[in-house]
Design a protein around this nucleic acid. Structure first.
Lengths: 266, 266
DNA sequence: GGATTTATTGCGTTTTATGCAAAATGAATT
DNA sequence: AATTCATTTTGCATAAAACGCAATAAATCC
């Protein structure tokens, strides 16, 4: 068999360590040494030394008095202190630009922050007066396309945790008023793949947004197009949403840089 | 380096890979190969292969068209899907028990979840009627000792993000009413190291809680003691708070299991 | 208390990670 | 466009380190 010349060099023991990390992270139970050894197909002693290395650095930890492994605080610290939004901006900016220029309207990139959606990047089309959504702006989750796209996967109980028992703040006639209505909206978004905003936050504004998903499905942000209803007509929804969904998918793929693993030989 | 002579076996290349991860995570800029090589004190080619291994697995990634490294989505996924509260319960339960038994009152462990504090574990003292705070209960952040302890490090703008512009929900006469008042309260908590609840959520209940911090200072949970004011007198604050703060610190140390594996003997 | 499982350590051997050097790539300068 | 300089990437021989084996220690189970 002709082997692909471009074999990515890789460090076995580091790779094994990462496998351990992922195994421990995805297991609901603490993971024992034996399980790790079997998973990697190596001797217990090897698994032991790998796990010890991870523990020394705080990437793994053991429940008090136990020998098996759980994730350590280093993982927690690392992921929390890292500026993920910055990474998202970097990766998505090109696509955002392409989207805005392709449709000649303003495109936004948003993430969830607390009980709001936060615009972390935007590209304004040329010759178009900017009407809304500066970078850095916080908007409600339940009354904007971006916000709803970010909520798309949540169940009723999760939504209740976020919004509590109070009535949802009302901004316009079309703002979603109740939690059950929001739940239904989320189902629709999951089915269609995108969310719309029919002047639900600002009068006279329309918006389409799609959730950006990692390859495991997790929603990490949203991308969308907004414009005054005078220019963004109802008949545009079909084509705009297609572009937005495609763009969101592309960004998701860019974020999930695990393509090369498939190219491996057995 | 005055590092403890470690008989702990460790895998060099895995350890180096972890160093890379941490370096990339703590850098605000993408990190170049040269920087990694220098940091590790190895040849560029070695750093290259380590970084490639991390990238293959999605732990690192490169900005579009660039060669330097940023954190990859695997880190994101891992830390998000892991059940951190479960880990916290495991690590803290012994201490929680000791605290409750030592003071003979109910002790709680809480984390922040959205705009609420969530009780994830509790130990009830013997012979004491349980009055509040079952595991799984959600309570407001601004009107409970646990909630305020969890907010302690936030600045005004962060608090505004969480609570929005609306008035803070009022539960009792003593509930904190305004955001500026909450900001001031947070400053006090940072100085004292603990938060108190003077019947701010439930009439007739007192509570002391302290933030649990990782060794880098990040608040990841809170621990505290609650009881009816009839039994938890004002003059108890001094001693109770001392115990609670100590307990929080101990849990924080247990979570930050960076080096002290040697201490786990016998 | 003995037996069985699981975790840990020591050691010789083989694998593998490494540094070197050279090739490719890319950026900057003229 | 040609040349330089810097950085990334590949090939390879060798030193180093990771590995499995086997022995020992610690836990767990009867």
């Amino acid at each position: 068999m002709p082997k692909k010349a471009a074999q990515i060099p890789f460090i076995q023991s580091l790779d094994r360590g990462l496998t351990i990390l992922q195994a421990v992270a995805t297991s609901r139970q603490p993971v024992t040494l034996g399980e790790l050894a079997e998973l990697l197909g190596v001797d217990r002693s090897s698994a032991f030394r790998l796990a010890q290395t991870l523990r020394r650095r705080g990437f793994l930890s053991s429940p008090a008095g136990r020998k098996d492994y759980i994730l350590g605080s280093a993982m927690w610290t690392l992921s929390r202190q890292y500026d993920w939004s910055n990474m998202l901006v970097r990766v998505a900016h090109q696509e955002l630009k392409a989207l805005a220029n392709g449709l000649n309207e303003t495109a936004h990139l948003a993430i969830r922050e607390g009980k709001s959606a936060l615009f972390i990047d935007s590209v304004h089309a040329r010759h178009v007066i900017v009407v809304a959504g500066q970078t850095g702006e916080l908007v409600p989750l339940h009354s904007t396309a971006h916000g709803k796209a970010l909520l798309a996967d949540l169940e009723e109980k999760d939504l209740r945790t976020i919004f509590g028992a109070e009535a949802l703040p009302k901004f316009t006639k079309t703002t979603i008023k109740t939690l059950p209505a929001l739940v239904k909206e989320c189902v629709g978004i999951r089915e269609r793949g995108y969310a719309v905003d029919e002047a639900e936050y600002m009068e006279g504004m329309r918006c389409v947004a799609a959730p950006i998903r990692l390859n495991n499905g997790m929603i990490v942000g949203s991308i969308g197009i907004s414009a005054p209803a005078s220019r963004f007509l109802k008949e545009h929804y079909s084509s705009y949403s297609k572009s937005v969904v495609l763009c969101a998918r592309k960004i998701g793929e860019l974020l999930s840089t695990s393509e090369e693993i498939a190219a491996q030989s057995a």
